[in-house]
Design a protein around this nucleic acid. Structure first.
Lengths: 227, 227
DNA sequence: GGCGTCTTTGACAGAACCCTGACGCCCGGG
DNA sequence: CCCGGGCGTCAGGGTTCTGTCAAAGACGCC
């Protein structure tokens, strides 16, 4: 199910959006200000964010920048301002689309669909959505891991952790980067999380967990997934 | 350079777009109708398409469908129609954005930048910078060193040390500069650190560590990396 | 409210790493 | 010839980092 984060301080707009989105089987979170928005974005990992630029606590563009520091989630900006400069500023800060109020609900939903659609994993392309090693297979699209013919059960955090590593196959991923991507931008020093979850992944996926072949530790720097 | 395909049958609009795009260092192709557009898209593989819906030979939505059959290239629709239905139809057919005429050039260009930006490859986007010598290769992005087909393990300090030298390939790096960059700004005289770590790097990377070819000592001055 | 799953913490042993001091070599100058 | 400075090498010990385990908290579901 697609998860949407609606950020707006006007209750009637928020309510209208929530009703329409829920009717179309979206999962919806709402935030009345920028701080809550950033926090919820990190905690809930929405698939798309609808962001009103006129927030009580901070400039909407700052919210965009705060998000773009660590995620590429589609951002659909909503604003009462029609000025070209405002649009350009928001778009260049990292917004994906800009809709002026008052807006047509049908159009907004269509733009939302478009934003979600193009953020989906590279479909027909030659990108390998499935990563194979000698010991197991990771299907990034289906969110499935297979080992010796059996599907392996991963918890949400385990999967997220694995995904970051696999998407950077061969590259070193720093501890800070892992923490930020999996737990959110306010994390960066809780390396014990990494140790615990790395151990879980190795236990579930490595042929010999005590001598990992695919999940390599680079002491003091981070971890690396090798196929 | 980013390649744009402009599809429009009105010469004055096409011309205005071409001028503005070329001024911003885009490479531009133009097509006056749908058939030409589909053909050029296949032949030239543009990074983004600006598509007017009102074409003489076929319905604009058909062009979108024709493109989406084989490519995910961003499509920015341009149209005189303001109706919500039209927008929804185009967006759901696979368009990425919808701008109504008359449009502001600044806004259009900003939307174009947004469309191109999000189509960029994921994963931070940093290109793999690989430095090669006869004896080993250094991948600065993946933080990987390969020698004779095997990955060489470097400690954090060793890697940092190597990185500074490699980024200044061919240039002399003074002792003070090395110490400051690797150990921090309060260091500058602890040349024994350098001797120790230089020895480690040579032992791990040089074919003949006692007669280094790539890590050259400039007595009294500093070190130099030569490929 | 009870239960199972998942996440977060804390503690600890073992491993990896970094600093340090000692020593020998080379070379130019006294 | 002797001496001193700069450099390369080596190994020990303190420090940090990692793997592992267990248990407490948080959460959702029935």
């Amino acid at each position: 199910m697609t998860r949407v984060l609606v950020v707006d301080d006007e209750p009637q707009i928020t309510r209208a959006l929530v009703i329409n989105l829920k009717a179309r089987k979206y999962e919806v979170d709402t935030a009345p200000d920028g701080a809550t928005a950033l926090q919820l974005a990190a905690a809930r990992h929405p698939d798309v964010i609808v962001l009103d630029l006129g927030l009580p606590d901070m400039d909407g563009v700052e919210v965009i920048r705060g998000l773009r520091g660590w995620t590429r989630v589609p951002i659909l900006v909503l604003s009462a301002r029609h000025s070209s400069d405002e649009k350009v500023e928001a778009l260049d800060a990292g917004a994906d689309d800009y809709v002026t109020k008052p807006f047509g609900m049908d159009e907004l939903l269509a733009r939302l669909r478009a934003a979600v659609r193009r953020a989906e994993p590279t479909g027909g392309g030659e990108d390998d959505v499935i990563v194979t090693t000698e010991d197991f297979t990771v299907d990034l699209a289906a969110k499935k891991v297979n080992r010796a013919g059996r599907d392996v059960r991963l918890t949400p955090t385990e999967w997220h952790f694995l995904e970051v590593l696999v998407r950077n196959a061969g590259r070193l991923v720093s501890q800070k980067q892992l923490l930020r991507e999996v737990w959110g931008p306010s994390y960066g020093t809780e390396t014990n999380y990494l140790r615990v979850y790395m151990a879980q992944l190795r236990r579930k996926l490595e042929a010999d967990p005590s001598h990992p072949r695919h999940f390599v530790t680079e002491p003091g720097m981070g971890y690396r997934f090798e196929r």
